[in-house]
């Protein structure tokens, strides 16, 4: 039996688009909150800025139930193995947001204790710089993440 390849491509593309659309508004995030950025994370998540408007209002504290890992705050070398473990425990598809400049590059903590950017231990999808980023900045990063999720393919 011959399969019309062009037709199948069209089908999967449409399926990807539908799934991406659905996924981008149901972000189950795991906030890995360590430091100062957590305060801005709180501010963003609560009523004043309300992350829920973007479908990301439901933090899950179990990595197995989450699909976006928010790494919020400085990661030290002592903590890096735990972070990696949380990442490994998350199920596919998963995305990682580096929240705050410490997670992006280490920020101004260029010293023996801190990891110079979490991308040295795991892949990162969206970087939100700022020390700490303002809530508007966080929401901007969230929208960028949604765009990325919407474009995602079925088999990542």
């Amino acid at each position: 039996m011959s399969v019309d390849a062009a037709k199948l491509n069209w089908m999967t593309t449409r399926l990807d688009a539908a799934l991406g659309w659905a996924r981008k508004f149901s972000i189950f995030q795991y906030p890995f909150v360590t430091a100062c950025c957590g305060m801005e994370y709180m501010a963003t998540a609560t009523s004043h800025y309300d992350m829920d408007r973007f479908g990301a209002g439901f933090p899950r504290f179990s990595p197995r139930q989450a699909d976006v890992l928010f790494v919020v705050g400085t990661i030290s070398h002592k903590l890096a193995p735990m972070l990696r473990r949380v990442y490994d425990q998350m199920t596919e598809p998963k995305w990682v947001v580096a929240f705050g400049v410490c997670t992006c590059t280490g920020g101004f903590y260029d010293n023996y204790a801190t990891v110079q950017g979490i991308d040295t231990v795991m892949p990162v999808d969206v970087y939100i710089p700022g020390c700490p980023p303002r809530p508007e900045n966080v929401l901007d990063g969230l929208i960028k993440l949604q765009e990325k999720i919407a474009q995602g393919e079925l088999a990542r």
Binding site: C36, T74, S76, L79, M82, Y109, N111, Y112, A113, T114
Partner: peptide, 24 residues
């Protein structure tokens, strides 16, 4: 100790005013 980020070492490494952002 999971958030040890060497404030005291960083403060020693720069002039007096440089420690102020670290104290935040």
């Amino acid at each position: 100790g999971y958030l040890h980020r060497a404030f005291e070492k960083d403060a020693e490494a720069g002039p007096y005013n440089n420690a102020i952002p670290y104290t935040d």
